[in-house]
Computed example of a mutant assay.
Amino acid sequence: MVDIGIDGFKLDECDGSDLTKGWSFPDYTQFSSGIDGKQIHVLFEILYQQAILRSFEEIETLSEVRSSGVFAASYPFVLYICMNLMIS
């Protein structure tokens, strides 16, 4: 996609929140690295951004991400908020 001129992405479903309707792995999951599900939920959003950034190499980008950690402050991603409004 980057090769055809896409210069930004909206990264969604990266936080494992209740809004994901359970698509993510449970907190008690054990990964082969020894990290558990709770720890990977914290790392996932940063790893997701790093994976996308590797695609751009020297191309400038400004993308969006729904959830991010403090260590991603220098990444070219804008944090956006997804709100579900319920009207009764």
Rank of each mutant, 00 (worst) to 15 (best):
G5N: 05
M83K: 15
S88F: 12
I87C: 05
G34R: 13
A72H: 09
D3A: 14
C82N: 12
G37V: 09
F25M: 10
P26K: 05
L85H: 00
I35S: 06
G37R: 11
L43C: 03
P76A: 03
V65Y: 02
S67E: 06
D27Y: 06
S32Q: 08
L62H: 15
Q30Y: 06
E57P: 00
G37M: 05
Q30P: 00
Q49H: 06
L19G: 07
F71T: 11
A72F: 04
Q49K: 14
P26L: 03
I81Q: 10
F31Q: 02
M86R: 04
V65W: 01
I87V: 15
V65T: 15
L85K: 01
L85T: 02
I87W: 05
L62M: 15
I40W: 06
I40C: 05
G69F: 01
S24A: 07
I4R: 11
S24K: 03
F71I: 14
I87K: 01
A72L: 08
Q39A: 14
D18H: 06
M86Q: 05
L43V: 08
E13D: 02
L43Q: 09
V70N: 01
S88M: 04
T61P: 04
V70I: 07
G34M: 05
F9P: 00
S88C: 02
V65L: 02
D15S: 15
K21D: 08
E64N: 03
D7H: 08
L11C: 14
E64P: 00
I6G: 09
D36Q: 07
I59Q: 00
F56I: 11
S88V: 11
K38C: 02
I52Q: 00
V42D: 07
P76L: 06
I81K: 11
T20N: 13
G8Q: 04
F44M: 13
M1C: 08
V42S: 07
S88L: 02
G22M: 03
L79G: 01
P26Q: 02
L79K: 13
T20C: 06
S33A: 05
D15I: 15
Q30L: 06
E45N: 12
I6T: 15
D15R: 09
D7R: 15
M1H: 10
V78D: 01
